[in-house]
Write a protein that binds this DNA or RNA. Structure first.
Lengths: 350, 350
DNA sequence: CCAGGCCACTGAAACGGATAAGTAGACTTC
DNA sequence: GAAGTCTACTTATCCGTTTCAGTGGCCTGG
């Protein structure tokens, strides 16, 4: 609480006018030189470049943006309560993937973390766009009848939808083949002899959870596997409660394998299975729809479906930057997931 | 790869000139009205405000920044390899905490995620600052002889250091009392009768790891507890290897309790203890310097030192925004950590 | 009744860069 | 050797906002 900071803005900031004055030429010539445009001689260009480096010049992003060019910033809103963000390694990986590409292509990420509230999310987009802060946005966590779609389209904000495909949506989307993933998961359990399984999915307000449920049901029916689908929150406790409920049934009725919607849910389920006096994988096999370090740290380590979230983020960033530059990549299919088999799934008990 | 996007910039964007024209007054009057400055009558002010809402006006951040005002953006660089970011719930919590405050006070977060490379981090600051993109930065992960300090001071970028105190540093820092934390941890183990403990810390290039090591050694010496300090990476495997090495010693020599630098390290250590044929907490107690969901998901659940990282991020953001507005809060002490005792620590075996 | 002050407002410049339009001078062209 | 074409610049304007320096009109005080 001591003295006010002595105006940090005091630090010398170099503009093209300074360079022009220093070299005795016009601002325009400097601008041409720095942007690699024709209109200046080779020697002048070199002198300008040298002076810019020497004097520590950087283009003012504000001034550039003001003339109508890009801002070089991409917006991303994370709208889940912080306690859910925590272990959802998905987000951090996604961010890292997005960032790699943005850095490569000279853009930056404007991030907003808000509790679960779609209105707030839309307000943020409206504001960022109105203030000309961003070139476009990445929309994650597609919801059923997603309320963000219409405002985004109406404001004509360039956007990439992580989800879809969507009939009205004309911008790029990153499409995951949930039905193939479901096949993979169910096939694995079927091969191990499981004929009664449960699927504890995340909230069905998310489109990907709906798709997975549908996929699992279809794959199970095809193989004559009996499946119970239960909707859970993403948090550990709800998964544990639902697991306990499932296992209270008579041994002949209860599932011999459980698919969980996330690594955290699976780890919690693991605890619930033990508390029910059963063991994994001897009595019950469990399988996580997400892989992560957590999956390898619990005992037994979890069989999990692994997606490359870094690549996912990178693909989203590429699609968005391409769109901003005028190329609509349309529907981009993301790489297939891979089932990593560990010790939490085993042959069904006879 | 279909048609180029039809210039999204085409969407009508309203400027104060539009409002001025609409109302038949000057741009200056509109500006005064919108900013709550004297110079316009109450009725005019109201008409301007109404028109701004009606026409959907937002201030252009670029134009504002150009006149020398704030940009309303705070920069943050995460420079650790993505695989470490993943389970380090610290970062996500920190981000969420920072964001809450920024949103409240009308700022946004510009984020860069880079692999572990301080040079790149400094280049990012230099660029952001040169391009007038940010008002200030939050420096996390203080390092020994931190190479970021000097450039930041020289460029006079307003910054908050998460760490310190540092003699030359005149800007705010967020100081954690590592010595009190160490006391708490060692006291707990001492009370349980442990007289031979090990501390597997994170990399000593980080100042907080050094402080913790020093604190643990001092607290142990004070109580006549024997302590072995080992430097580990933050990753699981190195912690497991070091744990195995420690437990290979003769029962009379090996530690009866191990303090780990993070939750991931502890969970991995847990596995290593089991593989050595020993049990937690009967043979060895383990304790994590970080609490998280992971700590509750492994068996046994981990005794852990809990920091409020959300509050930590919030404090950092507050200190920075205050600094930007001219108030240097100096040394801010963060709230003390709390030891959450769970099942992974128990009385030492006789 | 008029100087002085205040109020509500206008005009213009400034911020830093992009860019359209203009202008010398050198060089080609027939 | 005059007209035309390049090249290498310069001048001026614009983007949207803030802000400084006016400028009338009205009110007040002496």
């Amino acid at each position: 609480m001591s003295s006010p900071s002595k105006s940090p803005a005091a630090a010398a900031r170099v503009s093209i006018s300074d360079i022009a004055r220093d070299l005795g030429i016009s601002k325009a010539a400097v601008s041409y030189a720095l942007n690699g445009l024709p209109g200046v001689g080779a020697d002048t260009r070199e002198r300008v470049l040298a002076a810019a480096t020497r004097m520590g010049w950087y283009p003012s992003s504000s001034a550039r943006a003001l003339t109508g060019a890009r801002t070089g910033v991409v917006g991303l809103v994370l709208s889940r309560p912080p306690e859910l963000l925590t272990l959802e390694t998905f987000f951090v990986h996604l961010l890292a993937g997005v960032e790699t590409v943005l850095a490569e292509r000279g853009s930056s990420l404007l991030l907003r973390v808000i509790g679960d509230h779609p209105d707030e999310e839309i307000r943020t987009y409206r504001r960022w766009w109105g203030e000309r802060r961003i070139d476009g946005v990445i929309l994650i966590d597609e919801r059923f009848r997603d309320p963000r779609i219409e405002p985004i389209e109406q404001m004509q904000i360039p956007a990439v939808l992580c989800g879809g495909p969507l009939r009205s949506w004309e911008m790029p989307s990153l499409w995951t083949d949930h039905s193939a993933d479901s096949e993979r998961v169910v096939a694995h359990l079927h091969e191990l002899g499981h004929r009664r399984i449960a699927h504890l999915s995340g909230p069905t307000e998310f489109v990907h959870e709906r798709s997975r449920r549908r996929g699992v049901r279809r794959a199970a029916r095809k193989r004559g596997v009996d499946v119970t689908t239960v909707e859970c929150g993403y948090t550990g406790p709800t998964a544990a409660t639902q697991t306990a409920a499932l296992l209270q049934q008579a041994p002949a009725d209860r599932p011999t394998a459980i698919i969980y919607g996330s690594d955290v849910m699976t780890a919690s389920g693991l605890g619930a299975v033990h508390e029910a006096g059963l063991s994994v994988p001897a009595d019950v096999s469990v399988l996580s729809w997400d892989d992560s370090q957590l999956a390898t740290l619990v005992r037994p380590p979890l069989t999990a479906l692994r997606r490359d979230n870094l690549a996912y983020g990178a693909a989203a960033a590429h699609a968005l930057l391409d769109l901003v530059e005028g190329t609509n990549r349309g529907l981009v299919q993301v790489a297939a997931s891979e089932l990593v088999v560990r010790a939490s799934t085993a042959p069904a008990r006879r």
